Simulated assay, not measured.
Amino acid sequence: MFVGNDYSLDGKVKYDQLVGQLDALLTGEKNKYANLSNASALLNQFFDQVNWAGFYLMEDGELVLGPFQGLPACIRIPLGRGVCGTAAKHKESIIVPDVNAFPGHIACDSASQSEIVVPLMKNGVVIGVLDIDSPVLNRFTEEDREGLEQFAKVLTKHI
C-alpha cells in the first residue's frame, strides 16, 4: 500500500513505509536509470507542496541531470555551486528554507522557494544527489532530512 500523504501517520512511520516501498519496488532490477526514475516518481507522489523531485549524478567531476519529476531543469552543476553542488562537495545534506537567501543558488524553476538536497554515497564517495524543490518557503524539516537520508541509503543499494 502506498503511504502518500496519509496525515494520520507520524513522519517516522511514513518514512519507514516509504523506504520499505522503495526497497520492494527496486529489488531485482539492476538498471540504475529505471530505479532512479521509479524513485523520483515515488518521491513525487509521497510529498505534497513539491514542484521538482529528482537526481543529479556525478560524471567527470560535475553533477549531471538524471531522472526527475517536474519542469525541465539545469543540466550540469559544478561541484560547490548552488545547493546541489554544495551538498555534493561537502558530502552533507542541506535544507534551504528560502532559496533566494542561499548564496549562489541556481534558479532552474522560478517557482521554487525552498529545497532539500541529500548526497548519494557509495563507499564514502558522492555518486550523485537527491534534490527536491518546493514552491513553499520553509517546506522541509529535519524529519524530512532524516527520512530522505534513509531513502538515499536504500536507493544506493540498487544503483
Rank of each mutant, 00 (worst) to 15 (best):
A24T: 14
T141E: 07
V3R: 13
G147C: 06
K157I: 00
N38T: 02
V83G: 07
D131E: 03
P78K: 13
L42I: 08
K122R: 14
F140K: 02
F151A: 03
L18C: 08
K122V: 10
R81C: 02
F140P: 00
K153D: 15
F140H: 01
E59V: 05
G70E: 09
E143T: 14
L63A: 12
S110K: 08
I106Q: 07
F102C: 05
A24W: 07
M1G: 12
G80E: 09
V64F: 11
F102L: 05
V3F: 14
K30S: 06
A88T: 07
Y15D: 08
D16G: 06
L120W: 01
F102I: 04
I77E: 10
P135F: 01
A88F: 07
E29D: 12
C108Y: 02
A39Y: 07
E146F: 02
N44F: 15
H105E: 01
A101D: 09
D109N: 15
K30L: 07
S8G: 03
D131Y: 01
S40P: 04
Y33I: 04
M1P: 11
G54P: 03
P135Y: 03
K122C: 01
G70R: 11
D133M: 00
G61P: 08
L155V: 04
Q45N: 15
D6W: 09
S40H: 00
L22P: 04
Q150H: 11
D131M: 06
V125S: 11
M121A: 01
G128A: 04
N35P: 09
Q113F: 07
L65V: 12
V154S: 15
G128W: 02
L36P: 00
D133V: 03
L9Y: 10
N51W: 10
N138Y: 10
N123A: 12
Q150F: 00
G20H: 08
A73P: 01
A101Q: 15
D98R: 13
A39C: 06
A41L: 10
T141M: 03
Q49A: 14
Q150D: 13
D60W: 07
